[in-house]
Design a protein around this nucleic acid. Sequence first.
DNA 1: CAAAAAGTTGACGTTCCGTCATCAATCTGA
DNA 2: TCAGATTGATGACGGAACGTCAACTTTTTG
Lengths: 209, 209
Amino acid sequence: MTVRVDPNLRMGKRARAKEANRRAILEAARVVFARIGYEATNIRDIIRETSLASGTFYNYFKSKEEVFEAIANDSVKRFRPLLQKVRDEAQDLESYLYAAFGAYFTFLAEENDEAIQLGTPHMSLIGVRVDTPEMQTVSEEIAADLEIALDKIGLGHLDIVYITAAAIGMAREMGDQMLKRRPVDPEAATKFAAKVTLAGIEALAKSDC
Amino acid sequence: MTVRVDPNLRMGKRARAKEANRRAILEAARVVFARIGYEATNIRDIIRETSLASGTFYNYFKSKEEVFEAIANDSVKRFRPLLQKVRDEAQDLESYLYAAFGAYFTFLAEENDEAIQLGTPHMSLIGVRVDTPEMQTVSEEIAADLEIALDKIGLGHLDIVYITAAAIGMAREMGDQMLKRRPVDPEAATKFAAKVTLAGIEALAKSDC
DNA sequence: CAAAAAGTTGACGTTCCGTCATCAATCTGA
DNA sequence: TCAGATTGATGACGGAACGTCAACTTTTTG
């Protein structure tokens, strides 16, 4: 008789403890950032929220900034598979844009569901925004997707980098606004952003940029 | 005989010294941030770059973060009159968009002219981005401008907040990309952003959002 | 010109940082 | 199974950066 094994049990106690500690620190940081604000938080505040000793923090992160990055990267890590699905399933530019913006705005709403209920400010609204290499990678993936989609309809000569920047900038800024509204409505934001982007691309095509 | 007086001379020595000190600190911070990076910089590093004593720093700013904000706000302060001019002179939505994006991209290029020559990273590319109340104010001004322009052509029912967010997001993200290119070309970025935004608004109008 | 006010100074106590010797728990392989 | 090896947690410690403040200097006021 074969037994289904939780992958976590495959690892030794050591490896599991490490993962648990890392998670604990990240979760504690989330909580403390929300409670007293990012700037005011220091490393001892974070570690005090866990059952770990201060020295242990440095086995996992170099600094408060790195914790913040890790939190952001965790989000990116969860988002990437969604974007992959969009990439695999999209038929053309229009469906890609709708699906991609939809994935982003929905993801953003879900990620902040808790914060929305509690009324605590969202991570991207606490005043600082980081740009990590992981985010850069996602940008590049989107650019590549758009290039393929545009090539298919003979628009490969358009400025892909600017189009990508425009789409991402739109998503970021609109995302912040979306989270401020009640009810939070990702579908509306999606339609809006997709329409603008699509129309924008068509206009660029007509005027040969 | 009337004498032209430098406004600075109208102030007493004390007031002038205060301005000079504030400027000195801001300039020193600029230099040090560029030299060793924002995260690595501490307050002593900044003050050491001036001829002031450490205690004096705290007469002007509470923290390194506040200095960063002040630098950002200084930029906003210089930008606002340009936007005001755009507002006063624009005839319609299209001319407003071209002029506003143009003002932003040109301003950005000029502000970073020095950094571009030296190859040091631009303030908005050093990994953090702050959102200050002053920037919020500019957002609101742009939203108001857009509302007026859209009302004039019977499109006041469109979602002004989202349109503003889309335009600002586009400008920010495209601005970063623009600064990475050689030569830096604000006109191209302007045409691009204005076209996309204009086409986007037209598309929204057609589909009644 | 003298008294009051404003602002600078840098030494000092405090807070926070990052390291590391020590210890406890887990893993390895015979 | 167990002893030696390894991994990683611990928290006390030395040092770095912080923010304050009493003393001092310069400017303003009347």
